[in-house]
Design a binder for these strands. Structure first.
Length: 484
RNA sequence: CGGAGCGUGGCGCAGCCUGGUAGCGCACCUGUUUUGGGAACAGGGGGUCGGAGGUUCGAAUCCUCUCGCUCCGACCA
C-alpha cells in the first residue's frame, strides 16, 4: 500500500498550481479532454453545475426583458467581413467550413468534396448574424429596445487551450441588445455588467472588480468594453465576463436602422454581453483547496450529500428508512441532495464527496439513528465543523448553513483579492514588484502611465497586461497583472 | 507558432540507451474478514506499447514523418 497522501489532490496548489487545477477537474469528475484538439467533454457533474448557472442567470436576464432565441452555428464569411475591426480581431482564430460532402478516396479514406461557394465560419461570436436579423426586424423606434440572448456554443481556435479557461469550443450566453439612443446603450452595457457582478458574487461567491477595458483590450469593433475581473489563488487575473457598448459601429456595418420619432432615419445603438463556462474554471481556481473542488452552495449540483454508514448489514434497512425521512424533508425544503448508496467503502464515499466539493456532507449511521440525530460537515471548513443535531434542526437550518458557507467563501476570496492589490507609482516600481515571484496579484497605478510610449512594450516583456480601469477609482487608475 | 517535456491495460508509471513479441502500483472482478477521515489477504480479467512509414530474421525499444497532451512564451473577444 502506498503511503496515504496528506492531501486529496497532488500536487498541492503551492507545489504546482497548473497541475493542481487539472487534477481538481479530474478528481471532481467535471470534465476531460475530448478526442478533438482543444475541446473538452463536460461530464454530468460539471454540466449539472453549468445548468444551475444557466437557470439562475437566465432568470435574471428575463427579468430585464431579454428574450432567448437561437441563431445558426455557421456564419457566412461575408458577414464577418462587414465589420473591419471585428474580423481583424477574430480572423486568426476562426474554424472555417468549406465543404459539404465526403467521398470515398482510393484507400477507403473519406475526403471532403463539394466545395462551398462561400465558406462558413463556425461562430466565434454572433454579432454579425444576429445583427443581420435585427436589421430586418427593426423598422421603427417602436421596435426598440430589442433584447435578444442565446445560450450557445462558440468556437475560437486558440493557440493554447486550457480546460474551462480557454477551450476551442465553449458554452456561453451572448446577449445582443439594440436601442434608440447612445445613452440607453451605454446604460445597458453597464447594467448587464452589473448583472454579471451580482451573479458572480451572489451565486458563485466570486468577488470581481468591475471596470472598463483599456484601448488595447477592447472588443474588436466596440466603442467601450466593460469587464468583471477576478483574481485566482495564484494571483493571476481572469476576465470573467464582458459587456460591450458597440455604439453605432455594428449598426452601421450591418444596417440596423430605424425610423425615429422625428421621422428621420437613425442607426441603432447596440450592446453585447457574455459569460461562459470559463466561470467554472474561475470557481475552481478561487475556491478549490488541496483536497479539491469546493462548490459554491447556490449553484452546487448537490448541496447536501448523505452518506449512509452501515457497519452491520442488519441495520441497513433501518438506516435507509431513517435516511428516507430526511430525504423527504430536504425535498420539501427545496434542497438539492444526493444519497450515496454506491458500493464504495465509507471512507471512499467521504473522500469522493470532498473532492467533488459538495457543500455539506451528512453522515448517518446506527449511532445517529439511535439518537434521532445526524452529523454534518461543511466542505470549506472540513472535519473541524462536524456538527450533530436532530433531523428537524438540520432541515430547519440547512439553508442558513449554506448561506453562511456562501458568505464565508465570498468573504475569504474578497480578502484575498483586496490584500493582493499593490499601489505603485511608476513603471519601474511596477516591473520590480512583479519581478519578485513572491509578489502576486494586481498592481494599481495612475492611468497617466499609459501615456508613456514604452508602457505596452514593457508590460509585454513581463507577461503583464492591463486588466481594467476600475469604476471604484473613477477610471483614474488602471489595474495590471498576469492573466489567464 | 517558438522553447521544453510527454504519449505503453481505465489512471499513474517502469521497460527504450546496450532490439528478441510487455511489467509494476492504483482501479476493476470473485471470495473471506472488514467498514465513523482513503482496508487486508487470496485468486482473477484486461494492453500489443498515439498513428504512418522505414531499417532488421525480429521493433515498445533504432530512424523519418505525423497527430495529440502538459508546461513556459507569443496569441487571446
Amino acid at each position: 500500500m502506498a503511503k496515504k497522501p496528506r492531501t486529496a489532490i497532488t500536487p498541492t496548489r503551492d507545489e504546482d498550481f497548473a497541475q493542481w487545477y487539472q487534477q481538481v477537474i479530474k478528481s471532481a469528475d467535471m470534465a476531460e479532454n475530448a478526442p478533438v484538439r482543444g475541446c473538452m467533454i463536460i461530464k454530468p457533474y460539471g454540466f449539472a453545475l453549468w445548468e444551475n448557472m444557466q437557470r439562475i442567470f437566465d432568470g435574471m436576464i428575463k427579468d430585464f426583458g431579454v428574450e432567448n432565441a437561437y441563431f445558426p452555428l455557421l456564419i457566412p464569411l461575408s458577414f464577418l467581413e462587414k465589420e473591419a475591426e471585428h474580423i481583424d480581431g477574430f480572423a486568426k482564430e476562426c474554424a472555417v467550413v468549406t465543404h459539404h460532402r465526403l467521398e470515398q478516396g482510393e484507400n477507403g479514406k473519406l475526403i471532403p468534396a463539394g466545395e462551398l461557394e462561400e465558406p462558413y465560419v463556425i461562430r466565434p461570436t454572433s454579432e454579425t448574424i444576429i445583427g443581420d436579423s435585427m436589421a430586418r426586424w427593426i423598422q421603427s423606434y417602436r421596435d426598440l429596445p430589442m433584447k435578444l440572448n442565446q445560450w450557445a456554443n462558440v468556437m475560437r481556435w486558440e493557440m493554447r487551450p486550457r480546460m474551462f479557461l480557454r477551450t476551442s469550443e465553449f458554452l456561453w450566453q451572448e446577449g445582443h441588445n439594440a436601442f434608440e439612443t447612445a445613452e440607453e446603450a451605454h446604460e445597458d452595457s453597464l447594467k448587464m455588467l452589473g448583472a454579471y457582478k451580482d451573479f458572480a458574487e451572489n451565486y458563485l461567491a466570486l468577488p470581481v472588480i468591475t471596470g472598463e477595458k483599456t484601448d488595447n483590450e477592447r472588443f474588436p469593433g466596440a466603442k467601450a468594453t466593460y469587464t468583471i475581473e477576478a483574481m485566482m489563488q495564484d494571483g493571476k487575473a481572469l476576465q470573467a465576463g464582458t459587456s460591450h457598448d458597440m455604439g453605432q459601429n455594428f449598426a452601421k456595418s450591418l444596417g440596423i436602422k430605424f425610423q425615429a420619432r422625428d421621422e428621420s432615419e437613425q442607426l441603432a445603438h447596440t450592446t453585447s454581453w457574455g459569460i461562459s463556462t470559463r466561470l467554472i474554471g474561475g470557481m475552481i481556481m478561487i475556491h478549490g483547496d488541496d483536497d479539491g473542488m469546493i462548490m459554491p452552495p447556490r449553484v452546487a449540483p448537490s448541496q447536501v450529500i448523505i452518506i449512509p454508514i452501515i457497519r452491520d448489514e442488519k441495520d441497513a434497512g433501518d438506516i435507509n428508512k431513517y435516511i428516507n425521512g430526511l430525504e423527504q424533508k430536504l425535498k420539501s425544503a427545496n434542497i438539492r441532495f444526493k444519497t450515496d448508496n454506491s458500493a464504495e467503502r465509507t471512507p471512499n464515499k467521504m473522500w469522493g464527496a470532498i473532492k467533488k466539493g459538495v457543500p455539506l456532507r451528512v453522515e448517518i449511521g446506527a449511532r445517529e439513528m439511535e439518537q434521532g440525530v445526524l452529523t454534518y460537515v461543511r466542505r470549506d471548513i472540513g472535519k473541524d465543523s462536524k456538527t450533530t443535531c436532530s433531523i428537524d434542526e438540520f432541515v430547519g437550518s440547512v439553508q442558513d448553513v449554506l448561506d453562511n458557507m456562501h458568505d464565508d467563501m465570498l468573504a475569504r476570496a474578497k480578502t484575498f483579492l483586496g490584500s493582493n492589490i499593490k499601489d505603485v507609482d511608476n513603471i519601474d516600481d511596477l516591473i520590480s514588484y512583479f519581478k519578485n515571484d513572491a509578489n502576486i496579484g494586481f498592481a494599481r497605478i495612475d492611468i497617466s502611465i499609459m501615456d508613456d510610449a514604452d508602457f505596452e512594450a514593457r508590460l509585454k516583456e513581463h507577461s503583464l497586461s492591463t486588466r481594467c480601469m476600475p469604476f471604484e477609482d473613477n477610471g483614474k487608475k488602471v489595474l495590471i497583472g498576469k492573466a489567464y
